[in-house]
């Protein structure tokens, strides 16, 4: 501190502080700015779970514990939660898999978060919903043919308690790992097949830009709605979730059913936005979150102009006349 105190009246002290602050800002920004390889939490293409794998009774337990307090034991809704009988299983899958349900606060819009239950429990829940709550065939079915979430390593991990010896557990872990890798490879293949299966960029682009971009933004970055609501960003959304959102219209979002935009056309749309999001940033590693002109203007002032002014300060800094 003494060192600083002694020099704080130095003619260069002010400049030094400015330069230091700028450097800190720059380094801080570089550290905080996201890079292009944002983790793509992805998606699993799977068949509908076979009836043998799901347990409706288990699903009822899940429903009664996590859903019924707002939506009622029979799913007919209450003051705090809407009637679920006609929404269809796609809506259930969308709301739960994006972590929006169960909601922490029914009065506000929920952001996307990690799913609170396991994939298994969700399958049970959907089976229970279809069997007991859903009003006939109303609403849309879960589009199992479209890639959903990627397999997670946790789902394959063996439980240590099930194994007697350390060796047996290690072996099981190894096996689980192989299993996981295989599942992941299978998932990725299905994902690529779905995305690359689209071949009409023009159609996908027009559908996205005329029906989606005005809320979710040109790259799916989201946007503001009225009354404090917002259109969520859809970078992490899986193709299946995007599809489900379109057919069920969560929150304030209007519906785009399969008659107006067929499932093949939806594939074009989803492929367009997912390909766009995966596109590397040709202009450099910092993409400013692809916010666009506001961020560019901000950077031109805070980094661009500030650095040039710092150079001007260096050039013109007072020189002690006679040293």
């Amino acid at each position: 501190m003494k060192w600083i105190t002694a020099r704080r009246r130095h003619p260069l002290a002010g400049y030094a502080v400015v330069i230091l602050a700028l450097a800190l800002f720059g380094v801080g920004y570089a550290a905080l700015a996201p890079t292009s390889d944002q983790a793509q939490a992805q998606t699993l293409a799977a068949e509908a779970p076979s009836p043998d794998d799901v347990d409706i009774a288990e699903g009822k337990t899940v429903f009664d514990q996590t859903c019924a307090s707002c939506h009622g034991l029979d799913g007919s809704g209450s003051d705090t939660g809407p009637d679920l009988r006609e929404v269809g299983s796609a809506a259930i899958d969308f709301q739960v898999s994006t972590g929006r349900m169960p909601s922490v606060n029914p009065d506000v819009q929920m952001p996307r978060r990690d799913m609170v239950m396991s994939e298994q429990d969700l399958d049970h829940l959907i089976a229970y919903y279809n069997a007991e709550i859903r009003d006939g065939e109303s609403g849309a079915d879960v589009p199992y043919g479209i890639p959903g979430s990627a397999p997670q390593p946790e789902d394959f991990e063996p439980n240590r308690a099930d194994y007697d010896s350390e060796e047996a557990f290690d072996e099981a872990e190894e096996e689980a790992h192989t299993e996981y890798e295989a599942a992941l490879a299978e998932y990725e293949a299905a994902y690529d097949e779905y995305i690359e299966g689209a071949d009409d960029t023009e159609m996908g682009m027009q559908l996205y830009l005329t029906n989606c971009a005005h809320c979710h933004g040109w790259s799916g970055g989201g946007g503001a709605l009225t009354d404090g609501r917002w259109a969520p960003e859809i970078h992490e959304a899986t193709p299946r979730e995007i599809y489900e959102a379109m057919v069920t219209g969560p929150g304030a979002m209007p519906m785009f059913n399969d008659m107006v935009i067929t499932s093949d056309e939806k594939q074009e749309l989803i492929s367009y936005v997912k390909t766009l999001q995966a596109e590397p940033n040709a202009g450099g590693i910092f993409d400013l979150e692809r916010v666009g002109q506001v961020a560019e203007g901000f950077i031109s002032w805070t980094i661009g102009l500030a650095l040039i002014v710092a150079c001007a300060i260096w050039i013109t800094a007072k020189q002690r006349a006679h040293d």
């Binding site: 910092f286 993409d287 002109q293 560019e296 002032w301």
Partner: peptide, 26 residues
């Protein structure tokens, strides 16, 4: 190092399309 106005990502203009967060330069 800092990407600016990535027109190849925006897509071409049509008078019927719009994006949220649309801004002019500062």
């Amino acid at each position: 190092f800092v990407q600016i106005n990535p027109i190849h990502l925006f897509g071409p203009f049509t008078p019927t399309s719009i994006t949220s967060g649309l801004q002019p330069d500062w």
